[in-house]
Amino acid sequence: MLPKKIEEIKAKAISEIKKTASDRALFDVKVKYLGRKGKLTKILKGLKNLSEKERKSVGPLANQTRQEIEKAIANRKKEISGKIDWGKEKIDITLPGKKQELGHLSPITLVNREAEQIFSSMGFGIADGPEMETDFYNFDSLNIPKDHPARDVMDTFRVKTKNNDLLLRTHVSAIQVRYMEKHKPPFRVIMPGRVFRNEATDSSHGHTFYQLDGMMVGKDVSAANYYALIDEFLKKFFERDIKTRMRPSFFPFTEPSFEIDFECLLCSGKGCSVCKQSGWVEIIPGGMINQNVLVAAGYPRNKYQGCAWDIGISRLAMMKYKIDHIHLFHEGDLRFIKQF
């Protein structure tokens, strides 16, 4: 009877051991069979009450069984330790991440970079010029003589000096002749920078803003080339196949002069308040560089042809990010900057 019972205990114990998945469960099984009140322990403790004959036959079996169970537990323990209790490993992945502080760039920088990248990929270099300019580079060299009505349009901040000959540049086109004086065509170059106008400010006009002008000069640069360049820029910048159109305009430094419009993105050309019901948004003024400008730079008249244009970076940034007030660019309010 007893040996049969021992065999049963052994079978049960081994099967339970195999089922355990953790140290804790294994320990429980160990206690159940080998603990002070364990099933096998009870039998072992009862050996002394048996007859000598029974003891001799049951005793070794019980002890052997105990060793076997212990061995099974030890083996199982090894197996378990190579496993992970996934239940315990669980974390609440919805808790917030540890704050990693990264800074933010000004939206002007972001838009400038994008524009620079597009033109760089088309082989344009980048030129700089001073923000405090002379009348020659800001006006005269660009075919805007003194008393020209165009000087009215660009109300100018002047700086107090002995000769009253310094101003804050009203457009980055002031870099054009500076660049031409030092380089020989053919060339392609963009001129980004900060400009100043002493005019009434409102939500979309500031006394300080940013432009990115471009010019390309060579033997046979044409209006068709100009249109291709600007059309490509706008498509890349707005990342879609927008429609553009070129129409006549007037600027003293270009002849012929153009205005390039693109089809209003908001109403797809149907007409809305943003495009003043016209279906088109005026975006890039430019034209074929006036020969007088090329002559001011020291090139012989009619030796070269070129095109030039002006991109309003502040305006593009406002359009791109739907910023409703131009002053935000210069307030240094981190609640604004941290959104970019």
Binding site: F124, R188, G218, A223, A228
Partner: peptide, 28 residues
């Protein structure tokens, strides 16, 4: 150039098709 502007605009800039510039390959 003043006359070319007159010709261009009356002819119609919309009738001038975009042509990518043909330039020497130059790294900026």
């Amino acid at each position: 150039e003043d006359l070319i502007e007159e010709i261009g605009r009356i002819y119609g800039y919309e009738n001038i098709s975009a042509k990518a510039p043909c330039v020497e390959l130059q790294t900026p």
